[in-house]
Design a protein around this nucleic acid. Structure first.
Lengths: 345, 345
DNA sequence: CTGAAAGCGCTAACAG
DNA sequence: CTGTTAGCGCTTTCAG
């Protein structure tokens, strides 16, 4: 099954060789850019190959050469979260990786997988399906990832750098991002800045540390009541903010751990008659496309997806070739838009 | 390059065979579920294989058996549009396809490609990289797609069914979707319903036809001034709506060709002091996750992504095996939320 | 039921 | 510079 229709047999090297009146090896050399071949013969063969729109059979090539230029990209999901990934950040990351990998001549094998069965990605490598794997997000599987690293599985993950980490991670500079965001709000004269996100998620935790540091730099310590736990999904972010408002805690700013959370929080606050940025200034995190077009447009910490994708690919190749790569952070940058303003006098 | 580190040689059939004291062919049979093998031997071999966490080398298997269980999925993009895809609909579709394909034992090779060089996907098939291709969206390349079909390329596309179409498409029932949406608005007593979208895009065109049909069913013909051209991107949708408001055309409802457009339009209208749904009722298209959590939550025409993904995969397999499959439409359904209401008396 | 042998489409020594 | 010769890891006749 899953074989093509019988009639249109695919053209292969032997055909080209016959037509060009040379040996198969000559064709192979011509097409692979070997130097030990007459330029004239190469030209003839290349031309012939193109006119027949011949493309080399990658499976055979890989099998023979032991190479592999396919990398696996997996977006894990939590079982309870289930359903489809909805945060546009992931699409952006995937896009970026696709472009990077294509540029470098790699194919991208995509898969979703339950976070707690993430070990299964090892099969992709064991079976020679891919040469390495990029995992988007840690999803609380730090220890499992460490185990994969012990098995010498070639992979890198997009996420935070953690203590006792045996694998290579690439992430944004979360601490600094948090510092920038909270610093910006405090600099505008905001006094009671809510941190909205899930501190149990490693990246959010680091952003929270930056948030604390910004307060310290201003000689402040945030009221613990200003920590507003919220998952990274839209409905839960909305209900978290709704509950928070009901509690009546005073606040004049929100730093959300993702743009998606921020935008949903702004929506809820707007529906409750609060004005953003006047009553409450809001900063998000990621700078997804939507952030520039929300109402009001969202001030946020930009994670440069193109650099991130490039770094992930770079590190993965290093892990594959040298067995190791150091974790990295790509620099973050504050993008100021209309969702933040100075306190009015 | 891109070879794994030398030391950890991958275990293969020969190893299992040696350890089990049988021939390679026996291992092959045991693992592939052949019937002509002693159940006891099979058990022993399977167990051994699992304990060594052996996974079969797919490249070799495919090469030998001529099979291929990888399908290519491509999301084209327009050059001027460039940058990253931003509409969450695509992520949803990709997710759905990933799940469907995984369930059916296929791998998913993902790629972005410029819409007007879409012919290049043929290489994936010619080189034996994939057994077939799923293209997300027509992107105005109907004729190019027809040419690919003439070349017998095994592919299907998510999009509209068009005149003189030689390839298999799967899409939502755009006409009916438009009919439902506009019918709903007219049924609420709305009289001047804007159609916002790009009529040149084939799917939007069909939704527009449904919009016209709904008017006809109510004995109406829409004012041509109510056609509001808009691309499918956020900034352009916003400026289109901004311009439209400036023009001062009277209207009391909007049917947008995508949720993304609808949500951005709602934002612009809100910023101009218009109340949704009271002053203007809005219906979108797609039912992306965001639609349920916008302000107000968006009434929309749901495209069932799971069914769509399943249909795409099903059709692709049929094209591969039988050389042909008929185009299909998956049924759409109106999801009523708070962005639409009856005209007040 | 099992083993031996041939070969999928290609690359890479090895000899000219 | 080019052809000959072995396989890459697996499946599949063909004989036992």
């Amino acid at each position: 099954m899953v074989k093509p229709e019988s009639d249109n047999r695919k053209i292969q090297m032997a055909d080209i060789a016959r037509l060009a009146g040379v040996s198969i090896s000559t064709v192979s050399r011509a097409l692979s850019g070997s130097t030990l071949i007459n330029e004239e013969t190469r030209a003839r063969i290349t031309e012939l190959a193109r006119s027949l729109s011949y493309t080399i059979n990658l499976g055979a090539k890989n099998l023979r050469s032991g190479e592999n230029r396919t990398v696996g990209v997996v977006i894990p999901y939590l079982r309870d979260n289930r359903q489809h990934v909805t945060d546009p950040f992931f699409l952006g990351m995937l896009d970026s990786l696709a472009d990077q990998l294509t540029d470098q001549g790699f194919d991208l094998l995509f898969s979703r997988i339950e976070a707690d069965t993430i070990d299964e990605v090892a099969n992709w490598v064991d079976s020679g399906r891919v040469c390495g794997i990029i995992i988007i997000g840690q999803w609380g599987q730090h220890e499992r990832l460490n185990q994969l690293a012990r098995r010498q599985l070639p992979f890198v993950v997009w996420g935070a750098q953690l203590p006792q980490q045996m694998y290579c991670s690439v992430g944004s500079d979360n601490f600094n991002g948090g510092l920038l965001a909270a610093g910006h709000l405090l600099g505008l004269g905001r006094k009671r800045v809510v941190f909205m996100g899930n501190r149990d998620a490693t990246e959010a935790q680091q952003r929270y540390q930056g948030y604390l540091a910004a307060h310290a730099a201003h000689g402040l310590a945030p009221d613990p009541a200003l920590y507003l736990p919220s998952p990274f999904t839209e409905p839960k972010a909305q209900s978290a903010m709704t509950d928070f408002l009901r509690r009546g805690v005073a606040f004049d700013a929100v730093f959300a751990a993702s743009d998606l959370i921020a935008i949903n929080a702004m929506g809820v606050m707007g529906a409750h008659g609060l004005n953003v940025p006047k009553d409450v200034s809001v900063v998000g995190y990621d700078d997804v496309g939507m952030a520039a077009h929300s109402f009001p447009p969202l001030t946020t910490v930009r994670q440069p997806l193109d650099l991130a994708g490039a770094a992930l690919v770079h590190c993965l190749l290093q892990v594959i070739r040298q067995g190791h790569a150091d974790p990295r952070a790509v620099t973050t940058e504050l993008v100021v838009r209309a969702s933040t303003s100075a306190v009015s006098v």
